[in-house]
Design a binder for these strands. Structure first.
Lengths: 168, 168
DNA sequence: GCAATATACTAGGACATCCAAGGGTTTGGA
DNA sequence: TCCAAACCCTTGGATGTCCTAGTATATTGC
């Protein structure tokens, strides 16, 4: 989307914050802005790898989640909770995955309100291929040093727990 | 969007990865997934604080950027580069900010291709208020320990440099 | 000087996310 | 037993992001 900038725009923002008398929150501001930007970079890489499979990250995540469920099926509300996205986002993803023949909707055997999402054979195969590609091309070359990976997992894990993501 | 889960879904995913023989990339996968989720949490907090001001994060970022430019004006392509988003995203944000009377478009004095975005008095005032609110309600209570903030800035700064964000 | 190339912005389209609302199903207490 | 409250999914609308053209203006090179 552009060439490298001569200077780090986030470091500049941090300096601006300090210059305006907000030095006490300049560092967390910079950290949070860096998280936003890093997410954007990673998402672009992931989408790039998934594109040849006809998948987006949102759809891949759902496919991967289903592939780890023993039965290959999950209620939509369960998927929504585990992926931590709004139920309407799951509806949207399932619509498209179903159109692509990768999942099917089936009624819950005992609860008439619930819809199960079920992986098709084709969906399971594609999930495997896409995962292999992501492992090789993204996770295997994340650009994070081993020790930094551990730091990130620890720091962000604490943050997510405090934010109410999980009780653990 | 939901209550806390009994267990950390990302730690579960990491275990699944290991169980399937991808132990060598399970940790980076978990770190990257955690970044995605953390971004989502932070964005929701920020949007919540900005909503009373009639702003979204994308619009706020542009407003804040302009407020730090000495003249209060920037070419659209410059804004696109500094915010590191696609030019069409800037067009979109400017359209809405202009409708709200917070910025105006003006022609570049010497380059007929370029459009300048200029902060209005109203826009400058709102930027100040919104920044104060974000500093108090988000950056001032980020939930990150002081030392962890430094770690994040360092780790993500290295990542962004390697990703080609800036030369520095 | 003029054509070819590069740059700047915008229009249209595909996706994803959230919120608000609506219709069907279960559950639980009176 | 039965109705209100709770729960589940979907539809419709607002935003934001990106990509692919398309139009207009500048620059370059011959």
């Amino acid at each position: 989307m552009g060439n490298p900038l001569p200077r780090d725009p986030i470091a500049d923002a941090q300096r601006n914050w300090e210059r305006h008398g907000w030095g006490d929150v300049a560092a967390p501001m910079a950290a949070i802005t860096a998280i936003m930007r890093t997410q954007q970079i990673l998402l672009a890489r992931i989408e790039g790898v998934l594109k040849p499979f006809g998948l987006t990250f949102a759809r891949y995540e759902l496919l991967a989640l289903l592939s780890f469920a023993r039965s290959g099926a999950l209620p939509m509300n369960k998927a929504s909770a585990l992926l931590q996205v709004h139920p309407t986002s799951v509806t949207n993803a399932v619509d498209r995955l179903q159109d692509a023949g990768l999942v099917v909707r089936s009624p819950h055997p005992t609860d008439g309100r619930t819809t199960l999402i079920e992986l098709t054979a084709e969906g399971r195969t594609l999930a495997k291929s896409a995962t292999a590609a992501l492992n090789t091309e993204v996770f295997g070359q994340s650009g994070f040093a081993g020790q930094d990976v551990d730091q990130l997992i620890r720091i962000l894990g604490n943050f997510r727990r405090n934010a109410g993501d999980f009780a653990d």
